[in-house]
Design a binder for these strands. Structure first.
Length: 453
RNA sequence: GGAGAGGUGGCUGAGUGGUCGAAAGCGGCGGUUUGCUAAACCGCUAGGUGGGUAAUUCUGCCUCGGGGGUUCGAAUCCCCCCCUCUCCGCCA
């Protein structure tokens, strides 16, 4: 099916890949070549690719070992039970001796099994999700497919300023103080920027509550095990995550982490699905390796506030939910009157957990020479990749057993970047900023953020 | 931060070394009875993972907050961690 401007044909995972097997060890082994090709498409590090064959071999060994260990355990159980029933002391001590011998005989195998298991799992955990068949294959930004443009970038009859210039002039943003107090990449919002920030949050939240989402304010810190389950690497040289010294906590990079973690280790009722949350949190990113790249202003910062959507769905429900998240994002930016384009993100840019990802890029007049689109939202269908790691299942009605839920996330409003778009698109020649109509109610019914004297 | 008490199946809750993956109750599902509903009665009712079978089914292993240990044998004893509750202190 083709992607068109009227919508996206998102074939459900279970039709393409066979139901729960995706990135289950069994799936990987049965489809090793497919997985290998996908890893190449996704541009995984060379060692992950090289480890695929090692993984298959480890799994084979694990199975052999497991079988023999289980057989010995069976004998041990049998012996222990026989001991319990035996009243004659002499016979009883015979059983005890037998039990001792069995116990010693498996020790080696059990240790080896544990080691093999850990090695296999470590390799499996680094394999990225499979990729939606309609997602473009490629590795650079140019390989992302533009699905549509909505709204027309405004033509200015004066030279538009960027948000840094505007924000400083109106005393809305203080980068200097941010640098002094917290370092480069931090900032203070002041005056009407604070109200604008809050108004944008209210705007997004209201809209999503109306769409059936449950509002949540999440913790800004999470356990590393939750980070890992969602697919983030809390430690390591290229990590984007700040970790808290002497603890297993990290500052979250997005509420996706905490919202997704909320139902870890649970079996949900099918009737409760889809669960749709809209969460507010602060987001912290080290931006390691991003030095010098679009580092000016609010675009790439170490801390920002984000209103985030998160959904838990049935296997069959995720494709439609993904489109719903995308359409809500679009509706939010249409409501703000901001021109944007929609991108179908290419395989190499999907990261680990996403099966498919759409980005919204809003028009930012102050960006580059004469304006550019800049990423403001992103929505991912992660299939069962996260739920498998976090152990989130549901019980399908009328069937026995459980299945992994599907998880999806999407930005409603990332405050820093949306502020850029609002400030730059709504600027007037005198340096004042018109307030988007939908925000005026929360801004004292004013129409303009004025020039300060 | 200090002191204490706990974490058992969908829920309540028994179980302090062996026929316990686990009493009982509630809830849920199925059935009998009934003009209908209710009541009563009977039965079923944790998850994961592996093996045999065409299949109803049969069967192994793991799991009583998590991890480690003692033991022939652990829900039960020991150690570490997490979480919850009560009291004290501190605090927005």
């Amino acid at each position: 099916m083709r992607v068109g401007s009227t919508g996206v044909a998102a074939a459900p995972l279970w039709e393409k890949h066979g139901i729960f097997e995706m990135l289950d060890a069994k799936y990987v082994i049965a489809n090793i070549e497919k997985v290998r090709r996908n890893c190449v498409d996704r541009g995984v590090p060379a060692d992950v690719l090289a480890d695929l064959d090692a993984f298959v071999e480890l799994e084979r060994r694990r199975k052999d070992l497991l079988q023999s260990v289980e057989e010995t355990r069976r004998l041990q159980n049998e012996t222990a039970q026989a001991t319990a029933k035996e009243k004659d002391p002499a016979k009883r001590s015979e059983f005890v001796e037998k039990g001792k011998r069995l116990k010693e005989s498996v020790q080696n195998d059990e240790e080896t099994l544990k080691r093999v298991e850990l090695e296999a799992r470590a390799r499996l955990a680094r394999i990225p999700n499979m990729t939606h068949p309609d997602a473009p294959i490629g590795s650079t930004e140019e390989d992302n497919r533009e699905l549509r443009k909505v709204g027309t970038p405004r033509v200015f009859d004066f030279k538009p300023r960027d948000h840094v210039e505007l924000g400083v002039a109106l005393d809305l943003i203080d980068f200097e103080a941010g640098g002094k107090v917290s370092g480069h990449g931090f900032y203070f919002l002041k005056n009407d920027a604070v109200l604008l920030d809050l108004a944008l949050q209210r705007y997004a939240i209201n809209k999503l509550i109306a769409a059936g989402f449950t509002p949540i304010i999440t913790p800004d810190l999470a356990r590393n095990s939750i980070l890992e389950g969602i697919g983030f690497n809390p430690r390591g040289p290229e990590t984007q995550i700040y970790s808290i010294e002497n603890s297993d906590l990290s500052l979250i990079g997005t509420a996706e982490i905490t919202l997704g973690g909320m139902h870890a280790d649970q079996i949900l009722d099918e009737s409760s699905l889809p669960i749709k949350y809209v969460g507010i949190s602060h987001c912290f990113r080290t931006e390691a390796g991003a030095a010098g790249r679009a580092s000016k202003g609010l675009y790439r910062v170490h801390q920002f506030t984000k209103v985030e959507m998160f959904a838990f769905t049935t296997v069959e429900g995720s494709a439609a939910a993904h489109l719903e998240l995308l359409s809500l994002e679009e509706s939010i930016f249409q409501g703000l009157g901001l021109p944007y384009r929609v991108l179908d993100i290419c395989s190499g840019d999907l990261g680990g957990p996403a099966y498919r990802k759409f980005d919204l890029e809003a028009w930012m007049p102050g960006r580059g020479e004469g304006g550019e689109y800049g990423e403001v939202t992103s929505t991912s269908d992660c299939g069962d990749y996260q739920s498998r790691r976090l152990n989130i299942r549901y019980r399908p009605a009328g069937q026995k057993g459980t299945r992994f839920v599907h998880t999806l996330n999407g930005t409603a409003i990332a405050l820093s970047r949306t502020l850029i778009a609002v400030i730059e698109n709504y600027q007037r020649e005198d340096g004042s900023i018109e307030i988007p109509e939908v925000l005026r109610g929360d801004m004292g019914c004013r129409e303009v953020i004025g020039v300060r004297s």
